[in-house]
């Protein structure tokens, strides 16, 4: 995989808590090609947001390696880290909380460019106009404050801000979850168009399986800090190998009346990520659990060509 823009190996992020360690991200590996999208899907508390922040170096990793464009950036500091920041950006979930209420649209979009210092003031002005065009924000809003705008327009500001310094890679952390479906569709189309035009790679973090299928090339499914399945987007929906992925897919309500599907109802709820122990983390909720699952945690392994799953008995559904 020589074309990989971002390569992550055995990444771990533990948080110290009074009871021990919270395994937010535990041994996650993946790679993303230029202009490709990796979907990260999972439920609340599975570690997907932490993963995005560690990859961006907004949080320091506990262990593992992050290679960006051929260079190990896991521990870079100072000027080098600043240079790296220009190449990576993030779009946040909540367009109501992620914009400074005291800054106008112009100030928000131009801030990173001013700090970056490559462009002169007139150039920045021109670039803001250009960016507002790219994200479909009318020029009349250039001096508006966030409270004057609706959720969809605010999220467009978030996108414009992320694009302002021409990054090669953007972490989209649930960018459409707070939006109504008709607005969600507008923003998804925008993100796809931007990628096609500018060749930016995305990590797209979401809990919505229809959205992740729509936008991703490859998908990793996370459960309690670990990747339980990794697969090309199209294939995930025709066949799921890990029992958790199967249950997750079957739980999605499909907007077709009398849609014929077998619903797998999971027992219980997600267990605690604090000191998770030896066995398979999904075992307490798994319908197919066996003695071995409780004693020995399975490794993520290739079950079929380019299909990885973390289950001792993955062949059952392969």
């Amino acid at each position: 995989m020589s074309t990989a823009l971002l390569q992550v190996d055995n990444l771990k992020k533990y948080f110290a808590v009074p009871q021990g360690y919270l395994h937010a991200v535990d041994d996650v590996s993946f790679s993303i090609d230029k202009a490709a999208t990796l979907g990260v899907v999972g439920e609340s508390g599975c570690g997907k947001t932490t993963l995005g922040r560690v990859v961006l170096r907004l949080l320091d990793s506990t262990d593992g390696r992050i290679v960006f464009d051929g260079e190990d950036v896991t521990h870079v500091k100072g000027a080098k880290l600043k240079a790296l920041r220009k190449r990576m950006q993030i779009i946040f979930q909540d367009p109501y909380a992620s914009l400074n209420p005291r800054k106008t649209v112009f100030q928000t979009i131009s801030e990173a460019m001013s700090i970056n210092g490559r462009l002169s003031a007139p150039e920045i002005k021109k670039r803001v106009v250009e960016l507002m065009d790219i994200v479909g924000l009318a020029q009349r809003f250039v001096n508006a404050y966030p409270h004057e705008l609706d959720g969809g327009r605010r999220q467009r500001i978030g996108v414009a801000r992320a694009l302002s310094i021409e990054p090669e890679f953007i972490v989209c952390d649930e960018p459409v979850s707070a939006l109504d479906v008709s607005i969600q569709a507008q923003i998804l189309n925008l993100l796809i168009d931007i990628q096609t035009e500018l060749g930016i790679a995305y990590i797209f973090i979401t809990h919505d399986l229809s959205v992740v299928k729509h936008i991703s090339d490859n998908i990793i499914v996370m459960y309690l800090g670990q990747v339980v399945e990794e697969v090309a987007s199209a294939e995930l929906f025709s066949r799921q190998i890990h029992p958790y992925t199967r249950a997750l897919l079957s739980a999605v309500p499909v907007p077709i009346v009398n849609y014929d599907k077998k619903r797998i109802l999971l027992k219980g709820e997600i267990s605690s990520p604090v000191n998770p122990g030896e066995g398979c983390r999904f075992a307490p909720r798994c319908d197919y659990v066996q003695d071995r699952c409780l004693e020995e945690g399975p490794e993520l392994r290739e079950i079929l060509p380019r299909r990885l799953a973390r289950c001792h008995f993955a062949e059952r559904f392969a």
Binding site: N189, V211, V254, Y259
Partner: peptide
């Protein structure tokens, strides 16, 4: 506006 989880990927 809804991405389709059951079929092919189409532009929304």
């Amino acid at each position: 506006s809804l991405p389709d989880i059951t079929g092919e990927r189409k532009r929304l």
